[in-house]
Design a binder for these strands. Structure first.
Length: 453
RNA sequence: CGGGGCGUAGCGCAGCCUGGUAGCGCGACGGUUUUGGGUACCGUAGGCCGGAGGUUCGAAUCCUCUCGCCCCGACCA
């Protein structure tokens, strides 16, 4: 993309309503625009990152064998009356009435609807196990929306639902989700720690939350520092293997890690003192096993091998997709702006032309731009007629992890500068070598697609 | 929902107490200048002072009501 043709309304000054860094930077970098309390438009740059995150979630869900679909944002109230949650959910649920005076609601989650779909079409244990998921906008009428997209009222969420014949099978589905979530977060450049959690209004007697450590997190967390040494890495897991999935869960939940909701000081005190940590965390996902909580009242049953009709064991699993942008920025920024991890960056590299209008720099930039695209990368070329300082400031703000700087001085000896946003270190390379380096850097990120399996 | 605060140009703000022709900085636009970290200068455009009612000769300013937004708290992916 050429910046002169893009829509990137960056702000030089801090909008006064933004108190935390991710909100401030998202507004300043022209990623979002607030339309009402907790409701945002996603401007092109923000939308691009949102789509990248969404794509990673899709990839990893499908890698785990989960099936994508899409349910509507508006739901009939009757389904929720059936489960009993129409009254239980409270003021957080946005209720709407249509012209025929039918009660509708803007879905805060989809257990009822998915259960309805399931019971309409699945009758036999032979159709199990089944995991369906979608990525759809949700609305929860928060008492106090704040922190930009981290606590919006309208938010994009991946929610998946598992159906199994037995509790044992359902817990394997649970473990499978834990594995796929660990992989997903790591691809986004995040460390998300699974922590034992409470059920909350979704319900469930077995549940973990995934927390990203950040000063601005809303939850207080307590953990054994050894937990942060664990990484999923590029290990290959057979998602059908009960043992392999269980082993990952065991490994990642072996150390003490809880939020204030479930914190137990007595157990925490058994962790060696030098390893005890108290911090704050942002919740970016949660997994639940809730048994027959919905299948029973809503009649989601299958005929088992013994000919008996039994309610299915269910679980639900969520990733806060739009919230993740905030969480990633909270965990990756400095005083000049955002620092995107390679896995989610809106553009892979920025090209800064130091002397726009100069024949040699212009053509060098054009050549680099074209070649990067030819090699499958997505560059942002700052071809505006601006001073170098303004271009650098914009690039730093929007946080592209790599920058190629092209100026007459370096070009005289066939050199451009390749700069890492995070470390600030630069290398002088020929344009050809700089491109080769970038291709190499992004090879693992671009290589990760489901089709490659 | 309780407590606190704010709505004046695209953004950040002053003016309000003590009523009398609506201002500053940044940004935008047109020039000149400059070209390796938000350059400098000249000029131009841009405002029903959130909305409604009231007081007054006269309201951004005083009074009443209302809408919106932010912050703290209880609640939450």
């Amino acid at each position: 993309m050429r910046l002169s043709r893009y829509f990137l309304p960056v702000l030089k000054e801090d909008p006064k309503e933004a108190q935390i860094v991710s909100h401030r930077l998202m507004l300043r970098a022209g990623m979002i625009k607030q339309q009402a309390a907790g409701i945002y438009s996603w401007l092109p740059l923000g939308f691009k990152v949102l789509r990248r995150i969404e794509q990673i979630v899709h990839d990893e869900q499908q890698r785990a064998g989960h099936i994508p679909m899409l349910m509507p944002t508006l739901q009939p109230a009757d389904l929720w009356r059936e489960s009993g949650r129409y009254d239980d959910y409270g003021e957080e649920m946005l209720r709407i009435r249509d012209r025929q005076k039918r009660d509708l609601l803007y879905g805060p989650t989809n257990e009822e609807m998915i259960t309805d779909i399931f019971r309409s079409h699945v009758n036999s244990y032979k159709d199990l196990p089944l995991t369906l998921y979608h990525i759809q906008w949700k609305f929860r009428d928060e008492i106090r929306p704040r922190f930009g997209v981290m606590r919006g009222r309208e938010f994009l969420m991946k929610d998946g639902y598992t159906f199994d014949l037995t509790k044992e099978d359902a817990l394997h589905a649970y473990n499978r989700h834990l594995v796929s979530y660990l992989r997903s977060y790591e691809r986004m450049g995040l460390q998300a720690i699974p922590m034992r959690a409470d059920g909350g209004p979704i319900g469930g007697d077995y549940t973990h939350e995934f927390l990203v450590l950040a000063e601005t997190g809303e939850s207080e967390v307590f953990y054994d520092s050894h937990i942060t040494d664990l990484t999923f890495g590029d290990r290959q897991i057979d998602y059908d293997s009960v043992e392999e999935c269980q082993a990952v869960l065991d490994e990642f939940t072996s150390r003490y890690a809880r939020t204030d909701e479930t914190h137990d000081q007595a157990i925490f005190d058994q962790v060696p003192e030098e390893r005890r940590r108290t911090a704050r965390g942002i919740e970016v996902g949660q997994i639940f096993y809730f048994g027959t909580k919905y299948s029973e009242p809503m009649g989601a049953t299958v005929v088992g091998p013994d000919g008996q009709r039994v309610p299915v064991h269910m679980g639900s699993h969520g990733i806060g997709v739009s919230r993740l942008l905030g969480a990633i920025i909270e965990a990756n920024h400095d005083d000049r702006g955002i620092i995107w991890p390679e896995g989610v960056t809106p553009f892979h590299v920025g090209i800064v032309n130091l002397k726009q209008g100069d024949n040699s720099t212009d053509s060098a930039c054009e050549a680099i731009y074209a070649e990067l695209q030819a090699r499958g990368l997505d560059p942002l070329y700052d071809d505006r007629d601006e001073r170098a300082g303004a271009k650098f400031a914009s690039m730093d703000l929007i946080g592209l992890p790599w920058r190629i700087t092209v100026g007459p001085r370096g070009l005289a000896s066939n050199k451009v500068e390749l700069t890492n946003r995070r470390t600030g270190t630069s290398e002088e390379l020929s344009p050809k070598d700089a491109i080769a380096r970038l291709v190499q850097i992004y090879q693992p990120v671009l290589g990760l697609t489901v089709q490659d399996r």
